[in-house]
Simulated assay, not measured.
Amino acid sequence: MTSPDNILLRLPPAEEQQVREVFARLAERGFPPQQQTPHITITYSPIMAADAVRRAADLLPSVIPSPFRRVGTVVFGTKRKRTVAWLLETTDAMESAAREISALNPESRGRSWTPHLTMGLRLPREIVPDYIRALDEVTSPHFKQLTAVRAAHWMPRIQELTVLADASSEHRRDHRETDR
């Protein structure tokens, strides 16, 4: 099964590493290893609508970087496999942009958006309560703030990432070097 196209938000390297360390601690406790790159999905589709990508390229540069705050843990799914995620809150401007982009994706739920960062993908439902308990135990209580520093359109079927907005320090450094 091929993963769907995504319009997504990426974290700065230090925050991404903190999430990967949580993944590693959970794997050390015997839970399924998490291989996904930490990200916040705005919308996804088997093949992303071109209108959604164009609008994302228009809207997201003005809201990147964007702060997010962990406000809880949620479980998605109704079948055998479940997804455990950190529920996030962000600025009104990012919420508005994400909802507008999502509405342009015919595969989405309209203007609906639940900002989250997946912490456990395709978990057997029987282990979800223990996974959530372990996630709470291995996550620092001080790790509550996240920052979206890059927005991109990811097409896994062709392994292509198109950056739509980038406020990361590496991008700014590279940009300054090419302007000389």
Results as ranks from 00 to 15, higher is better:
L117R: 10
R122P: 12
E100Q: 06
I101N: 01
P124T: 06
V138M: 12
T83Y: 11
L164Q: 09
Q145N: 11
E100Y: 11
A103D: 12
R133M: 04
T90M: 07
V149G: 04
R99C: 14
S96E: 08
W154Q: 02
D166G: 05
V163Q: 02
N105V: 06
A134R: 01
E107T: 09
S96I: 05
W86Y: 12
E107R: 11
S96W: 12
L88Y: 11
A98N: 14
L135N: 06
V149C: 02
T147D: 03
T162K: 15
A152H: 02
T114D: 03
H142Q: 10
R133C: 02
W86H: 08
H153M: 09
T114Y: 03
R109N: 10
D166W: 06
V84Y: 06
A134Q: 07
R111G: 10
D166F: 02
E95F: 10
H142K: 13
R125D: 00
H116L: 14
A152R: 01
V149K: 01
P129A: 01
P106F: 10
Q159H: 14
I101S: 12
A151C: 00
M94T: 12
E160F: 08
T162W: 13
R111W: 06
I132K: 04
H153G: 03
T91A: 02
E107H: 00
Y131N: 01
L121I: 05
S112K: 09
L123T: 00
P115T: 12
L135W: 09
I132T: 09
H142A: 14
D136Q: 13
A152K: 03
T91M: 09
I158W: 04
R82L: 15
L135V: 14
A134L: 00
L161A: 03
A103L: 04
R133P: 07
Y131G: 01
G110K: 13
D130C: 03
W154H: 01
W86R: 02
R80D: 07
E160K: 15
H116N: 01
S112W: 08
P115N: 14
L87V: 11
M94P: 06
A103F: 12
A134C: 00
R122Y: 14
E160S: 07
T118S: 14
R157T: 07
A103S: 03
R157H: 15
P106A: 03
H142S: 15
L121Y: 00
I101H: 09
L146I: 06
S112H: 14
R122S: 15
I127Q: 01
A148S: 08
E95G: 06
D136W: 10
E107P: 04
P115C: 14
T118Y: 05
